[in-house]
Design a protein around this nucleic acid. Structure first.
Length: 804
RNA sequence: GCCGGUGUGGCGAAAUGGCAGACGCAUGGGACUUAAAAUCCCAAGGUGGUGACACCGUGUGGGUUCGACCCCCACCACCGGCACCA
């Protein structure tokens, strides 16, 4: 069979007959199956795309055959850095290259033979889409979830441009190798931290890989502790520190502020000012990457000021050190050298005192002692355990107004400004008189101008486009300037799944009634690399939109599966620079899309992936031939009948296959599902070879075989279905259902063990009683046993273990 | 450093605490063929034995259990995430 020819034949027929068109009137049976949409890069689809989309489509087809109205759309995440970099390199405008790539990729995606309903396509870089991305930004702004503040960007002093994090390689500019500096710019943020608690809590509701949930949990980083208020000696300044170990509060021998803390200016003594200023300047110069290197030597300077520890009234020095982060907690920490690794190293280095206030239960007196223990040298708290003490100390301070129980999150607000061209413009206007003013909704979209010099020279590309920048202030009507930045592409991809069901709506981002019916996504499939970014942002968007009243569900993706990564044959991640990218083109040219899909599903464990190797692809093509020969065998005479035994045997395999394949697809265990189908093929051959039977039973088995195969090899199965003389289309057929009766065997073989070692096999009736089984087992040992057994363990259907 | 995951034949991989290695690849043998290809059938973890069989085998070392790839403890290697988070 010329697989490539039948593939185009069926693809054409599917399109003509609209086989995969979503029917909204059947939305009560909807199943929203979504794969993460593609980035339209210049390169062709590689093996990894197929590995994501092929198996996902198998799942979708299986569900369609089970009677679900499957909604499986596809689209393009089309804004972003690669197109812009490509443009800088080649001079080809990002819009031109992107739209061209999309056209190419649409065709390539069609070659996979997936059920995408292209009527619902979404492309993020067209005004019809980004108009609503901008609208969503405005809603966030109106609801207090978007705000501006200064934040550092990566700055390359040689290219004179802002770099994205991924363009910084080991602290250096990816392009020119200069050392990257930090520079502060006023930028927009989304207040994702407002949702930290709910984002954390609702993880419990989700059918997601535990690993992914744990990653999000750690990313959100909730920690329970308390704040303790220190007063600065000889002044009315007070400040708070956050700690999870209030039980060590009596051991505070110094206090540290972050270099960026505004408090520093207020408290520093004149004699220390010069040294402190010098230290702060150096800290600001240090790149974030260096500063975050945990093995870096600890440094710090005295401020000359002293703080009063509220638990014992002791005066301790206040220092400035860059191991304290301004962005976490209160930007100030109490130094307990005896009971914290970092504080200990710091105190040793600077010669600060170390005082033990927690004793280990096992008499361990090494320092630092960071475990929980029993409090000592802590006044009224002596003898309390750390667990009790860390609450009791805060509770006491709380009464005095000098402390409070407090929960902290590691999660930070989401920086969404990008000083880049190829993105959705931020729909804000800056007016000298009115400040930051949102673009009125009726003026959306703020179109991204085409004629822009996007070569890097130190400014946002849009800032150089006067016709774009100059605008009237919507409030006062005086001349004003647009925001020159564009939105992070993660903003575009945080809501695309909401747009699919209503992608042509020109009045709204989406119709509430429609998406409440179609969402949440029932099965979401994509790479694990998005665990903490895209997947968290999308959850945040959904929750924020719910609170604004635009939709009525809490979570966008109920069930999530990550496909594994297909590596190059050298075992490394595929990359152009390594030259180990596997293109599916040759294989598809030679064997066709179905063989390639099946090979990918059979050769790897879906969630594991692994290094590419095409050893088995030829054999998959042979398997197709083997199936085809079986389907083409003459049949329907109903003359040659097999024995009842042979029929029963095959019927067992057939139904067992149906049962296992259904469960395996449900679990995304495609390799074992295909193994079961191969077993069925083998069993049908056995049946034919044994009796030459070509009866109606044989006919039924063949039909089931084609139906079982259909989700995996859709074009091939469609052709086989036609060869069997059946009506178009096999995808309107129900997926076979297991007849449990056929799985009840009359006889079963049991292993007979003596002291857990196999010594014999015995076949008994499947409904044999325990006594019968024991008797049969002992008989099978033919009296090899000396004396009476101490104990006999019977595992029905499996084994008998005789303990002698 | 911390948190996860993985480790099984020559290879890809399977195994609700119950006969390890299903299903394939590569390999060997046979049938068909003048021959080859294709196809069909059989064998196959290792060691020893003519053999029925015996012993050893799921990264390493312990443990729980009648029974452990699976559960527990310690360790090794690789992969992924986080990384001074107070």
């Amino acid at each position: 069979m010329d697989l490539r020819q039948i593939e185009s034949k069926w693809r054409k027929k599917w399109e003509e007959t609209g086989l995969y068109k979503f029917r909204p009137e059947r939305a009560d049976k909807k199943l929203y199956v979504l794969e993460m949409f593609s980035y339209p890069s210049g390169a062709k689809l590689h093996a990894g795309h197929w590995y994501n989309y092929g198996p996902a489509d198998t799942y979708a087809r299986f569900k369609k055959m089970q009677g679900y109205e499957v909604f499986q759309p596809m689209g393009f995440d089309a804004f972003g850095l690669p197109a812009e970099n490509y443009a800088i390199k080649t001079g080809i405008h990002p819009q031109d290259s992107t739209l061209k790539n999309i056209a190419t990729m649409e065709n390539q995606l069609k070659a996979i033979g997936a059920m995408y309903d292209w009527d619902y396509e979404v492309i993020t870089c067209v005004p019809e889409y980004y108009k609503w991305t901008q609208w969503l930004f405005l809603q966030m702004y109106k609801h207090g979830l978007a705000y501006r503040k200064e934040a550092p960007v990566n700055w390359c002093p040689s290219c004179n441009t802002v770099l994205a994090n991924e363009q910084v390689v080991q602290g250096e500019c990816e392009r020119c190798g200069s050392v990257v500096e930090r520079k502060n710019l006023t930028q927009w943020f989304f207040k994702i931290t407002d949702y930290a608690e709910e984002l954390l809590r609702d993880l419990d509701k989700l059918d997601w890989p535990e690993k992914t949930k744990l990653m999000q949990k750690n990313w959100i980083g909730k920690s329970y502790g308390g704040e303790i208020e220190f007063a600065v000696k000889d002044s009315d300044v007070t400040f708070r520190v956050f700690t999870t170990r209030a039980d060590t509060a009596f051991g505070v021998t110094y206090v540290v502020l972050a270099p960026e803390s505004p408090l520093v200016d207020k408290i520093v003594k004149p004699e220390c000012r010069a040294a402190v200023e010098e230290y702060r300047k150096n800290a600001a110069k240090t790149t974030e990457i260096d500063r975050l290197a945990s093995n870096r030597e600890k440094t710090g300077v005295l401020t000359g000021a002293y703080a009063i520890n509220p638990v014992n009234g002791r005066e301790v020095p206040i220092l400035v050190a860059d191991y304290v982060l301004a962005s976490y907690g209160t930007g100030a920490v109490m130094g307990v050298a005896a009971h914290d690794e970092r504080d200990y190293v710091f105190a040793k280095k600077l010669g600060l005192p170390i005082e033990r206030v927690v004793k280990g239960v096992d008499g361990n007196d090494d320092l630092p002692f960071c475990d929980y223990g029993v409090m000592i040298n802590s006044g009224e708290f002596d003898g309390m355990t750390s667990e009790e003490g860390k609450v009791a100390v805060i509770k006491k301070l709380e009464k005095e107004g000098k402390g409070a129980l407090k929960t902290n999150y590691r999660l930070r607000d989401w920086l969404i400004s990008r000083q880049r061209y190829w993105g959705a413009p931020i729909p804000m206007i800056h007016c000298e008189h009115c400040g930051a003013v949102p673009v009125p909704e009726e003026d959306l979209p703020v179109r991204l101008p085409y004629n822009v010099d996007f070569k890097p020279d130190g400014k946002s590309p849009l800032a150089k486009c006067e016709e774009f920048m100059n605008v009237k202030c919507p409030v006062c009507g005086r001349p004003a300037r647009r925001d020159p930045d564009t939105l992070d592409t993660f903003v575009c991809s945080s809501w695309y799944y909401l747009r699919y069901p209503d992608n042509k709506n020109a009045e709204k981002a989406f119709d509430r009634e429609k998406i409440d019916r179609m969402l949440p996504v029932d099965k979401y499939i994509g790479g694990a690399e998005h665990a903490c970014m895209h997947l968290l942002y999308a959850r945040f968007f959904t929750k924020a939109l719910r609170d604004m009243g635009y939709l009525d569900f809490d979570e966008p993706f109920l069930s999530l599966v990550h496909q594994g990564t297909i590596l190059g044959s050298d075992g490394f991640k595929m990359s152009k620079s390594r030259g180990n990218v596997v293109s599916p083109d040759d294989s598809i040219e030679k064997y066709g899309a179905d063989v390639f899909r099946m090979y990918l599903m059979f050769g790897f464990s879906y969630v594991e992936g692994g290094p590419w190797n095409d050893n088995g692809i030829e054999s998959m093509a042979k398997f197709f031939d083997r199936v085809e020969r079986l389907i083409r065998k003459g049949s329907g005479q109903d003359e040659v009948r097999a024995s009842v035994d042979a029929r029963e045997k095959l019927d067992y395999v057939r139904n067992n296959t149906i049962k296992c394949v259904s469960a395996d697809i449900e679990n995304f265990s495609f390799n074992t599902a295909i193994a079961r189908i191969m077993e069925l093929v083998n069993a049908v051959y056995d049946y034919v070879n044994a009796g030459g039977a070509t009866d109606t039973f044989f006919e039924d088995c063949r039909k089931d075989l084609v139906r079982l195969l259909a989700p995996f090899a859709p074009h091939f199965a469609e052709e086989l279905w036609e060869i069997l003389g059946q009506e178009y289309s096999v995808f309107n057929q129900p997926f076979p259902v297991c007849n449990e009766d056929a799985l009840v065997l009359r006889k079963v073989e049991l292993a007979v063990q003596v002291n857990s070692r196999i010594r014999a096999k015995v076949t008994v009736a499947s409904d044999a009683t325990r006594e019968e089984i024991e008797k049969a087992a002992l008989a099978a040992l033919e009296g090899q046993l000396e004396g009476a057994p101490k104990k006999i363990i019977v595992v029905p259907g499996r084994l008998v273990n005789i303990i002698a």
